[in-house]
Simulated scan of single mutants.
Amino acid sequence: MLLDGRQSQLSRYTIKGQKQLYREQNLPEKQEGWYLIPGKVDKVSWLLIVFFVTTLGALYLLTVSI
């Protein structure tokens, strides 16, 4: 932004640019239930976040009880 200012077109290397590229070329967003397009989070992947938070909570409870 400092060097060139606002761009009139999206770069295809950004998430918004990839979404635009997928729309323009009619590429499939999913393959076998998994997203191909960047910036989308699969439903199963949210379980990893829940597992991570649960693990942190369990470790916290273990340190408090000692």
Rank of each mutant, 00 (worst) to 15 (best):
M1S: 13
L2H: 12
G5C: 09
G5V: 00
R6V: 08
S8W: 07
S8K: 11
L10S: 03
S11P: 07
S11A: 12
S11T: 01
R12D: 15
Y13S: 12
T14E: 02
I15R: 01
I15Q: 00
I15E: 05
I15L: 06
G17A: 15
G17W: 04
Q20W: 10
Q20H: 13
L21V: 06
L21D: 11
Y22L: 07
Y22V: 03
Y22Q: 05
Y22N: 05
R23K: 10
R23N: 08
E24F: 08
E24P: 02
Q25H: 07
Q25I: 05
Q25F: 08
N26E: 14
N26W: 06
N26P: 04
P28T: 00
E29V: 03
K30P: 03
K30N: 02
K30H: 06
Q31A: 06
Q31P: 02
Q31E: 10
Q31K: 12
E32Y: 13
G33S: 02
G33D: 04
G33Q: 02
Y35H: 11
L36W: 05
I37N: 03
I37S: 01
I37W: 04
I37M: 09
P38E: 04
P38Y: 03
G39R: 02
G39A: 01
G39H: 03
K40A: 05
K40H: 11
V41W: 02
V41G: 04
V41C: 10
V41I: 06
V41H: 06
D42Y: 04
D42F: 02
K43W: 13
W46L: 12
W46N: 09
W46I: 05
W46H: 13
L47P: 03
I49L: 14
I49E: 08
V50D: 15
V50S: 10
V50T: 15
F52R: 01
V53S: 06
V53E: 05
V53W: 02
T54M: 15
T54C: 15
T55S: 10
T55N: 08
A58N: 05
A58V: 15
A58D: 06
L59P: 00
L59H: 01
L59K: 00
L59R: 00
L61F: 09
L61S: 12
L62F: 13
L62R: 02
L62H: 12
L62P: 01
T63A: 08
T63H: 01
V64Q: 07
S65E: 14
I66W: 15
I66S: 15
